[in-house]
Design a protein around this nucleic acid. Sequence first.
DNA 1: CGTTATTTGTGCGTATGTATT
DNA 2: AAATACATACGCACAAATAAC
Lengths: 247, 247
Amino acid sequence: MPDRVKSVAYRTLADTIRSEIRNGQYADGRKLPTEEQLSVSYSVSRQTVRRAMQDLVSEGIIYRVAGRGTYPVAEEDRYIRHFGSVEELMALSLDTECEIVRPLQRRVDVENAGRLRLHSDDLYTLALIRLHGSVPFCYTSVFLPPRMAELLSDVTDLTCQGRRSRVTVIGLIDARMSRAIMAAEQSITAAGAPSFAAERLTCEPGQPVLRVDRLYSDEAGNPVELAVSYFDPEHYSYRVKLRRSPA
Amino acid sequence: MPDRVKSVAYRTLADTIRSEIRNGQYADGRKLPTEEQLSVSYSVSRQTVRRAMQDLVSEGIIYRVAGRGTYPVAEEDRYIRHFGSVEELMALSLDTECEIVRPLQRRVDVENAGRLRLHSDDLYTLALIRLHGSVPFCYTSVFLPPRMAELLSDVTDLTCQGRRSRVTVIGLIDARMSRAIMAAEQSITAAGAPSFAAERLTCEPGQPVLRVDRLYSDEAGNPVELAVSYFDPEHYSYRVKLRRSPA
DNA sequence: CGTTATTTGTGCGTATGTATT
DNA sequence: AAATACATACGCACAAATAAC
């Protein structure tokens, strides 16, 4: 089996710089190296450096000023949650905790099986809440095709009620499928808090909450996970910065 | 005063193709011309064509398959609203109508003046509903700094109560400022429908609705418009397709 | 206030790789 | 196997914005 992720130069460089920024290499608003310097350090052409930078700009983690240089976007300007890419969804585990409300189990569920495009009505499901600090801000129901649930059946972070950890379900799946997750379709709407979620989010049932449905797919377009989340608007808002022409 | 938008080749080409697609030139999923063909037709290099295509891909209106070609994304797959760029917000006027609920007028409003970073508490405001077909799906309150309101004081589409048209406020501002709008910050949350909005959206007051706040800024970062919209979740949901690495 | 150096932005040419037909 | 079409990568030149002098 060939490597799923070809070692494309500009993507490798983007990955490197992305993690350097995450590690605080360029904290306190220090400038990143110039295109010329990067091109020399990593032995790639300046065009390749530019291609990598383009991705980082559109991820919103750096900004560039002609004639001045390239700077990391300050943490506080990076908005509460951006979610402009699948990577950012996976990075959710970096600063939030997850607590299992209902461990991974089999269930018959016609509606959600349909959304996962399963031929049978059998699926696996679990529920969790996500906390920032010790404040719960999100209740999530996860639905998985049987073949995906098998991959995760040995993960005690998902199978033990009440267990706390810093994982994301999609991150676990992705690791076990060697980076095969390619896309997610996200739908945001408003709803009244269902009672099971209200109970955990310390709000009243029926109170307006953000409902976010995410359907993750692999490279073939097959759904691998459906996550339905209810966000407490007191502790969460979805922010995006829009630019004139997407970089 | 120099022209604000230099006639950059790749942007001009992107604009051209974008409107060709909107006009249905490539309907029924017909292929777009190849890079080579475009490069000849418009007398630009293939690299310039690629740069233009990159923008259109990231706007989600075309997709490309190596070895096959470039195709317009089908209308029904383009999601109800994408809003990945300022251009797309302006394009809202293409397939929706706007009805003035409260015409442009002066008002003293400390809170919203603060959000527009005004030194005084004087601002101008108007309210409108947006309709798709004849169904209202959105109630919007617009707040403007005095200098922007002046620009629009002669626009009867905004100053006459009950007037219907196909404009967007930001589109009008942009045209009068020669494309100076550079960014918008968008925040999405859930709220109970305020009574003034519920009345127009044919829903109950307090019913969960999506609240979207958008603050538009010019190239200097100065706010030029604040729009607070309430969307009926029955007729609207915010959808985004996320990819592994943003294109 | 211009001049100059630095740094990013735009545009083009070319070559090669990879996926599709 | 060959032709087609998009993807990656490198090189170069010049423009435009910024900063320092």
